[in-house]
């Protein structure tokens, strides 16, 4: 298909979106990522039944936490996608890239020193 998506993306592959914990998302942001998007399977099509539903709840939890500490909660996002749908992946990546560019750089960038 030779689709393009923004070069700003770093892809971290996980076996299921349900393995992504709140802590992982927070840590990425703390280390300076401008945004984190979790992409799971379509709702109702999780191989482990509820992995993607858990992922969505965790992303929402991160959003609330970020808003509470004065960081824009939009920096964390959840998308659902069928694994064969390349064009939609590219579109979501564009969406996310655009959303984050509007927000500007992560205010924490280079400021935090995560605990050892």
């Amino acid at each position: 298909m030779r689709l393009t998506y923004p070069t700003s993306f770093r892809i971290v592959r996980v076996p299921c979106s349900g393995t992504v914990d709140v802590k992982h998302i927070l840590r990425a942001l703390e280390k300076g990522a401008d945004g984190v998007c979790v992409i799971g399977c379509m709702e109702g099509e999780c191989q482990y039944k509820t992995g993607n539903l858990r992922a969505r709840k965790r992303v929402e939890q991160v959003q609330r936490l970020l808003n509470a500490i004065g960081v824009d909660g939009e920096r964390a996002q959840m998308y659902n996608l069928s694994s064969s749908d390349g064009p939609l992946f590219a579109k979501y990546a564009e969406d996310m890239d655009e959303r984050i560019r509007k927000l500007g750089p992560n205010p924490m960038k280079h400021k935090t020193k995560p605990a050892a």
């Binding site: 709140v22 924490m108 935090t112 605990a115």
Partner: peptide
Amino acid sequence: KEAGMLASALRMYFANQGIADAQVDE
């Protein structure tokens, strides 16, 4: 797990406030 989340949130809070020398451990 919850301590990790809280500590992370506090670190980000301090960083966001420009308090660079704050340290939050768990």
